[in-house]
């Protein structure tokens, strides 16, 4: 931010950007629920939702009305306060993470609501807060399945947090900054090339953190009936899922910013609008890839999940840091990778 620009104007621009992002969050989650069901349908050689509206386009709104008007069932065994509000604890952090996502550079203004110097660290820190909501939800339901789902969630999230953090550290080493926009704009070569091991570790850990299918042990339908959200219905269930779909996009956006060059790409629109276009295109392509990936694989076992985190992903991420140190020390290599 330039010092000569008066704060008021900057603040107004930031508020406008924030309003845009608020709108985007709502549309995005609704759109993704439909997109997932459509994609799943096509993969099963079905059509997916077709009844509500043309081509099933209004299905998310029908779901929303249905979930809003569901009766309020609170199990007798539940801890009322935490049962009622844990969904909000899970949802609010997912909303905050959007503040750090660099959507592009339009007309010389960064489309980031909170352009902080430690953005990458903030994203993973805020994402980790959601787990508290999920664990509280599982524990307070007063159900054995959901308690097991909750402790599994805890174990899974903390195990994959470490390789994910270490993968981000390697990216920070290359970029020399933790500012998400800076990282995305400094890439001469997309970081997926020099950081391929790191990308794999980050991708797998992220899938585990957002409970996508090969790692959805916290809500495994066939073993824990639905894990932490067995007892939830209506609006609370809706908010747990809102959070999950929001994280699906946030994860894809973070992968885009860290590994796929953010908004870089051929410029074909005026005022730098193409950076916004490329960022969204790459992010949604990543969302599609994650959906495809998770529908193609069977669920892993609990022991395989933990072994993979501690005995494969953690050593791999350390190897990746050493490899990155090698690039950072070699000036000629570094010049090829970053601007």
């Amino acid at each position: 931010m330039e010092n000569f620009v008066p704060y008021l104007i900057v603040a107004l621009i930031q508020v406008a950007i924030s309003l845009g992002i608020f709108g985007f969050v709502m549309v995005n989650a609704l759109l993704l629920t439909l997109a997932e069901r459509k994609l799943l349908g096509w993969m099963h050689q079905r059509l997916g939702p077709m009844e509500v509206g043309p081509w099933g386009l209004f299905q998310p709104f029908a779901d929303m009305i249905k979930l809003l008007t569901k009766g309020d069932v609170i199990p007798k065994a539940a801890d009322k306060f935490f049962y009622s509000y844990s969904a909000l604890i899970a949802f609010t952090p997912s909303f905050i993470t959007f503040a750090f996502i660099p959507f592009g550079l339009v007309g010389g203004i960064k489309l980031v609501a909170a352009d902080t110097e430690i953005g990458v660290l903030m994203i993973s820190a805020v994402m980790a807060l959601s787990v508290i909501g999920i664990i509280l939800g599982g524990w307070s339901s007063g159900n054995k399945f959901s308690l097991l789902g909750a402790v599994r969630t805890a174990a899974q999230e903390i195990s994959y947090e470490i390789p994910k953090t270490l993968a981000i550290i390697a990216v920070v080493m290359l970029a020399g900054s933790m500012n998400v926009y800076h990282i995305s704009s400094i890439q001469r070569v997309w970081f997926i090339a020099p950081q391929f091991i790191g990308f794999l570790v980050f991708f797998v850990s992220s899938l585990a953190e957002i409970f996508r299918i090969p790692f959805d042990l916290a809500e495994g339908e066939s073993e824990l009936v639905a894990g932490y959200n067995v007892e939830f219905s209506g609006i609370r269930f809706a908010f747990f899922f809102f959070a999950e779909y929001t994280y699906l996009f946030v994860t894809s956006a973070v992968i885009t910013a860290l590994y796929l060059g953010g908004g870089s790409g051929p410029e074909f629109l005026p005022w730098g609008l193409s950076s916004l276009f490329w960022f969204l295109l790459k992010s949604f392509a990543m969302v599609g890839f994650i959906l495809w990936f998770s529908r193609s694989l069977p669920r892993v076992r609990a022991d395989q999940l933990m072994n993979m985190a501690w005995k494969i992903m953690l050593p791999l991420s350390l190897v990746n840091i050493i490899w990155t140190a090698f690039i950072v020390l070699n000036e000629n290599l570094l010049k090829i990778v970053v601007k």
Binding site: F91, T92, A114, T116, M122
Partner: peptide, 17 residues
């Protein structure tokens, strides 16, 4: 300045819920 917007996002998220 950036963290002000983190706070705003937290409040709006909570209010939305």
């Amino acid at each position: 300045f950036g963290y002000l917007f983190v706070g705003i996002f937290a409040l709006v998220g909570l209010a939305m819920g």
